[in-house]
Each structure stands twice: as C-alpha cells, then as structure tokens.
Computed example of a mutant assay.
Amino acid sequence: MLISESFAAFKAKQKNVQWSVSAISENNELVVSLWDQFFEKRSKGTMTYADQVSRWKGLGNSEFIENLNIAKEKDLPVRAIIAKSKNPKAVAAGEPASNLGNTFHPKKDWTGKLTIWDGDNFEIEFSQCK
C-alpha cells in the first residue's frame, strides 16, 4: 500500500506526499508513519515505539516535530502506519529512506498515546482499539 493510501485510511492527508510522515486527521488524531524496527513489546497488550527525531534529517522532520508538539499539547490519540524498509540499517542511520523499497500498513486496530516527548526523544504506547 502506498503511504498516501495509508494516511487516507485514517482520514488524514499529508501536506506533501513526497516527504510528510505525519498528519492530523479529520478525527483530530495524530497519524504517524513509524518504522517497524523501533517497536518494542514492553508489557502485555501493548507495543511501544521509541525513537529520536534527531536520528534523521529528512524534509518531513520539522512537520513531524510540529505534530508531536500539537499531540502533546492537545493530548491527541495517535494512530500508526507501520513502515517497513528493505534496508533497515540505512533507516537506523538516518539516511534518506524514500527510495529504499518501503511498504506501509495502517494499523487500524491500534490506538496510541504519546508518553514521552522532550523535543528529541519520543515514545508512543499503542494498544488494541476497544
């Protein structure tokens, strides 16, 4: 599935389909594309995504930071699009990832909460929708 189709599944529209990796949906939810390799199972029934915005410098980074700030300020629910790359080492190194043969999958059955956001480090805890 294309990333734009994944955002549309949550009624969210990217500002720029070439580089936007986050958006606020029509339902007032933060929708984010997140790399599968940064998810951890920390407790039963949840998955936690932990990363740093400083890890990458892509064009969507500023917009992503802005949207994390909005989500924290307004306590928005978070919805996940799982991104998987054929080159996870390049992703981990913060290299441009748009041409790495990525796939995207909207996790319609998950809802999350931004639990840590300090301007660089962030964590989002996801659980099954009720």
Rank of each mutant, 00 (worst) to 15 (best):
K72N: 14
A12C: 08
V78Y: 07
S4N: 09
A71P: 04
K13C: 09
S20A: 13
S43H: 10
K11D: 14
A9H: 03
V21N: 06
E66M: 08
N102L: 08
K74L: 14
A92F: 11
T115W: 03
K11T: 07
A50T: 13
Q18C: 07
G94I: 02
G58E: 11
D75A: 11
Q128G: 05
K44E: 15
E66G: 04
W19Q: 07
E40I: 09
L2V: 05
L2A: 02
P88G: 02
G112A: 04
A83I: 09
R42Y: 06
K57C: 05
A23S: 09
A12Q: 01
S25M: 05
I3R: 15
I116G: 07
G58M: 09
P106I: 01
A83W: 12
V32Y: 02
D36Y: 13
E40C: 07
A23R: 03
S25G: 03
I65G: 05
G94E: 01
L114A: 00
K108S: 10
G112C: 08
K89Y: 04
F104N: 00
E5Q: 15
R42P: 00
R55V: 07
A80N: 03
S85A: 09
F39T: 03
S62F: 15
I24D: 05
E26A: 13
L2N: 14
E125M: 14
G101D: 05
E66W: 09
T103I: 09
H105E: 15
L2C: 03
M1E: 09
M47R: 08
N99L: 11
A92E: 11
I24H: 00
Q14G: 00
F64N: 00
K86A: 13
S25F: 10
K57I: 08
G112I: 02
I70Q: 08
V31R: 00
Q14N: 03
A23F: 02
S54T: 14
K130H: 12
W56K: 05
N16V: 08
A83P: 01
I81W: 02
S22C: 10
A80T: 02
N28W: 11
S85V: 01
L34W: 02
S62Y: 09
E123R: 11
W56I: 04
P96D: 08
S62N: 13
E125A: 04
K41H: 12
E73M: 10
S127F: 09
G119D: 10
N87E: 14
A93Y: 08
S85L: 03
K84L: 11
S62C: 01
S22R: 02
